[in-house]
Nucleic acid binder design. Structure first.
Lengths: 348, 348
DNA sequence: TGCGCAATGTAAAACGTTTAAATAGGGTGA
DNA sequence: TCACCCTATTTAAACGTTTTACATTGCGCA
């Protein structure tokens, strides 16, 4: 049983293939009664044009490539969801590639050459499949500038940094500033920070926001209040201990991700420090688990879905050669839960 | 600047396009020195053949479609990761569609007609893009049998049920049997269960495993030990209460997902019941958060990655018309953490 | 010398569409 | 009646490959 094509439809409807094409695409006037006839045959045979052939001729595939550094990392599915929404609305398709960086045997972030080869292969593959552009979804810890080239197909980076390229980010600095402002509004003034690794860009930005807020609100500043972790739960556990052993400990802590915050909570529990009564904690990332910890962590939700949409919007603008409209980055949003209260001293 | 094609390469290498094609695909002998020459030109111009044109002519796209009911649900990214691994190893590509069932405005699981239209559109779209087969990733609560037709392209379902179709599942019954066996090995004999909704297939299967183990190990059976929740955290909270107020409460509970287990933990904490000293809990799903709860939950890990691989393997076999080899379903694996100990009475 | 055959190469059709250009068949106005 | 235009339609080229069928060459061998 041969697959039916446009010729078969044309034959049955007693018209040329051109008419069938015009009817389907509405690219030219067709006499209503002919149109009717064609439509009926299409319906009858449940004919769907071969998108491959269409693409070849029209040189438009309506397909964009998505490269995820690791789809199992928490940020990625939400971003893809955003991308998919935009794509669906604009009749585009998504060709997905997962780099799987975290699990690739022998891969480590320092090995730029190996990364580059891997990523470049993915790009070449997508380009050879005639995607019209690429969205790259990272997991942060690396500046990707110049590592990838796409042969002048547009590429938009998100959740990672590519200094001279087009990259979509939420506003880290603003987010951490907002968190401090929130703590201040609750009455805190002795606010510590548990940062991620200091050679990472988000750490620096979030620290900027922290420092800026401290200055602006004229809060107590103590270098001993600045602890640098490694993003892992253990370091949160460790550093909370150090902080609370200070002769005059903070009443609130901004922790730069929920993983470290979870560790900090465990440390607090072991030391009999009640959160939020004796100590307030604000996390970052709004990870799924943070709503199930005890207490449920107040944390910064990342606008991942919006970033996906914005990335697609930007990409599609560049594909159609439109003016680069500079959009505001999407904002993080504080999720108020149970790990923040007023400072102890303010309670009667 | 015109995109260079096979003709340009042929011209520069002073051969016909056929030779270039033969060199690239190794489909015929080419004199080594000619081959050399062609290869050099290809290299020089960094030529990559247009996969769309290749597909049109060869009628093979090396692309499979993936339909996810909701990519933001925890199971999906891991399954996709498995699919991607297999695809990468076999030089296939993934065209992704996210149905986004949970968030679609107005969508609810009971509305089969609306679901069907939505899903069928996605399928038609993929088929028109000439995918060679489809993997469907569900989120469980529905029998999909007969709702979708693919015009005789093969389709493999996973993480959902489609009774008369080809569907890949882990062994729910075995998993829950194993969990009970584990509790027995720790000395428990009074084991309750908090089930999911009873009209759901996994609930039934997991209950089978529970009941089978109870019978086989000749454990105490009490209908009051069977509680039916709705998969949500609140119901876990509620039902743990009911269980512990029984005159003679269980010493261990099998909870059919980690969400309800989290609720149960909270209820236990409020009642001053120490886990695992006074009560053991085994969860299901190995959700990310379950490693961060207090205590960290012992739970059943689902072989999601393997299911993705197996789904692809099955699909590709069907694509190439190979014998349907019936493979064993991948198995769940108990992740031992801190929510299980021996029953209280066995402690001196 | 002539023949068959292997090795190497080329020309051109084909894949299923879109679309520019050509054509047919009427009106219309002068 | 003719020149012109408009609409509806068809013809056929093109998109960038693969692949079939055929052509050429050179070699071994009777």
């Amino acid at each position: 049983m041969k697959k039916i094509g446009i010729k078969d439809i044309a034959l049955r409807a007693n018209v040329s293939t051109a008419i069938v094409s015009y009817v389907m695409n509405g690219t030219r006037n067709v006499k209503p009664e002919t149109k009717e006839r064609v439509l009926k045959v299409i319906e009858e045979f449940n004919y769907r044009p071969n998108a491959i052939a269409q693409s070849l001729k029209s040189r438009r595939t309506n397909t964009i490539g998505v490269i995820a550094e690791d789809i199992t990392v928490f940020n990625t599915p939400e971003i893809i969801d955003g991308i998919n929404d935009y794509a669906e609305q604009h009749d585009m398709h998504i060709l997905l590639t997962n780099l799987r960086l975290q699990k690739k045997v022998g891969y480590n972030y320092a090995d730029t050459a190996s990364y580059q080869k891997h990523a470049q292969n993915a790009v070449s593959d997508l380009v050879s499949n005639q995607v019209e552009g690429i969205v790259y979804i990272g997991v942060h810890p690396r500046d990707l500038t110049g590592l990838i080239h796409t042969n002048d197909k547009p590429i938009v980076y998100t959740y990672c940094y590519a200094q001279n390229e087009c990259s979509i980010q939420y506003n880290d600095e603003q987010a951490s500033y907002d968190a401090i402002q929130y703590l201040v509004s609750k009455g805190h003034s002795r606010i510590a920070v548990i940062s991620g690794l200091m050679d990472s860009i988000p750490s620096r930005l979030r620290f900027n926001g922290y420092y800026k807020a401290l200055t602006e609100f004229q809060l107590y500043f103590d270098p001993q209040f600045i602890k640098v972790g490694d993003w892992g739960g253990e370091s949160g556990y460790q550093l909370l201990g150090e902080l609370m052993e200070l002769p005059d400990p903070p009443t609130a802590i901004l922790v730069m991700n929920d993983l470290m915050a979870a560790g900090a909570l465990r440390a607090a529990a072991e030391r009999g420090i009640s959160i939020p009564r004796e100590l307030s904690v604000v996390g970052f990332d709004n990870r799924e688990f943070s709503a199930y910890l005890n207490p449920r962590i107040t944390t910064m939700d990342l606008p991942l879905h919006d970033m996906g949409i914005l990335a697609m919007k930007t990409l599609c603008n560049r594909i159609s050669g439109k003016e680069e409209t500079i959009e505001e980055p999407p904002l993080c949003k504080l999720i108020e839960r149970d790990s923040v209260a007023g400072p102890r001293t303010s309670i009667k």
